[in-house]
């Protein structure tokens, strides 16, 4: 079974996504602590990453992964329409990353996951 790691500081959001993915037949876990995300990733096939978090942001996780040379597919979730400057920067530095607005998760999350890691 494919394993998905959710890194999200909002417990309700994390819990909901976990329930949702489990319902679709994935093995999903979440972490509220973004700082340890990169190190946890080796046991997972995909990372669902919240961008705006206190202390350790999603961008910091992506940079951390790059530094530690950890290469796993990433879907970035954001509640905010990001300014072009930030999306451009992220797309340039992490070209394989998929972006999904949080309010579009119900329709876009599953197809994106299936496309990346399969059923």
């Amino acid at each position: 079974m494919k394993r998905i790691l959710i890194v999200e500081d909002e417990p309700d959001v994390a819990k909901t996504i976990k329930m949702y993915l489990e319902g679709e037949g994935y093995n999903a876990e979440y972490s509220l602590n973004a700082a340890e995300a990169a190190d946890m990733l080796k046991d997972y096939d995909l990372l669902l990453l919240d961008l705006i978090m206190p202390k350790f942001s999603g961008r910091a996780v992506l940079r951390d992964m790059k530094e530690k040379n950890i290469s796993k597919p990433v879907i970035v979730l954001s509640a905010v329409a990001l300014p072009m400057t930030i999306t451009d920067e992220l797309r340039r530095d992490f070209p394989d990353t998929v972006f999904i607005p949080k309010t579009a998760m119900y329709s876009k999350l599953l197809p994106a996951i299936k496309k990346i890691i399969g059923e």
């Binding site: 309700d12 959001v13 909901t16 119900y106």
Partner: peptide, 12 residues
């Protein structure tokens, strides 16, 4: 949008 996204996904 954060709580809204939770509501929407749970509703779905």
């Amino acid at each position: 949008k954060t709580p809204l996204s939770v509501i929407m996904l749970n509703l779905d």
